[in-house]
Write a protein that binds this DNA or RNA. Structure first.
Lengths: 202, 202
DNA sequence: ATTCTATCTTGACAGTGTCTAGATTGTTTT
DNA sequence: AAAACAATCTAGACACTGTCAAGATAGAAT
């Protein structure tokens, strides 16, 4: 990398593009992420990226898919501790919110309508997101068995409801409406109180 | 209206623009809503709208503000019934989801980052959204007093947590990820179970 | 050595938001 | 009623966008 691209053929343009795009997304936001600017940064002609990605949508899908893989990894690390306790659950909730805040542009790309509604989600993206989702549902099931989450419904439904709640908080935070960053902890804790089963005593 | 605009001065271009824009947004989505197309539809030159709206952001703010006023109205109607029961609360939850689904593009504009993060929220928009929020918090307080919602925290925090949850569900639905429309009812009910206090018996 | 294919380039087109300068009209002041 | 003013609308232009088509270059396969 950083071969000052003197050769006609770049070599690993595809990966370089994804990296540069992720970088640009993180630093300047989705709005500043254009195919042309990207090509410029990488040091290649405007249309060169189109030999590696069908269109902008495809590039964005690749970035988003990476994001889901990151999240899946985080989840797996927590799950593999085999400790399906309330504390671990809380830990992940804060980790999730933290991820959304630190990578707000990426988070928006991953879950927003740009790809899922306006655009066309890639097969890779669909797979990556489904994996993250499945991971969550499995964990919810374990948490239900440990009495952390309610068993009044299937893991799927409880998983959807809890994730949706989390997602809503994350969105309010990163979209900048109704909620300011100072009180994240308080709000997350209030939300946790709604989600987690209250036990009389330990 | 529909005066076939033969006059040089349109007369009520501002209102016409907002209406046409709302219409276009609803029918073809935010992506298809461009200033130029809008001007074309209304039958006016490309730059005419700029005499009524500073920029596209301002137009979108006006549309979004209308949306908040709609929602505030819905909320007020329910509140004014003075019936702060669990049933009324549930009713509103479904009404909220219904609103998001029927007016998904508007909902996205109202709560999305296009205006709040990427763009610059108008004073009008800020006011309208704050009113809707205040309305909700007031109602949450009443619901707390009636034992429908938990009193373990301030109306503000409980209001934020519940609204965020609702918002998350709405977003998953209209953005088309992780959730399909068939199971809306089930998911909303699961979420309600998490939010509403369980009473031993009536 | 020649063909083939992957990769990259330039040129072009239609679309976008919005600035500037000028035209037209309605309103106010004289 | 005439003149000045302000509101409203227009056409032209600029920089930017995604992406298509046709051609150039280089490495791999024959």
């Amino acid at each position: 990398m950083t071969t000052t691209k003197k050769t006609y053929h770049h070599g690993d343009l595809k990966i370089t593009l994804i990296q540069a795009a992720s970088d640009l997304l993180h630093k300047e936001g989705a709005n500043a992420l254009s195919m042309r600017k990207l090509a410029d940064i990488v040091g290649v002609s405007r249309t060169a990226p189109y030999h590696h990605f069908k269109d902008k949508n495809a590039l964005l899908c690749a970035i988003a898919a990476n994001g889901f893989e990151q999240q899946t990894k985080q989840l797996r690390q927590l799950i593999e501790q085999q400790d399906h306790s309330e504390e671990t659950f809380k830990k992940y909730v804060f980790l999730y919110i933290h991820f959304a805040q630190q990578q707000s542009e990426l988070y928006d790309l991953m879950y927003g309508r740009t790809l899922w509604q306006t655009g066309t989600p890639n097969d890779d993206l669909k797979l990556a997101s489904r994996q993250a989702f499945k991971c969550w549902i499995d964990w919810v099931e374990a948490l239900q068995k440990n009495g952390v989450l309610t068993s009044s419904n299937t893991p799927l439904r409880v998983g959807q409801a809890t994730w949706a709640s989390l997602h809503g908080l994350a969105r309010f935070l990163i979209d900048g409406i109704y909620v300011d960053e100072e009180n994240v902890t308080e709000m997350a804790e209030q939300m946790l109180e709604m989600m987690v089963i209250k036990h009389p005593l330990a």
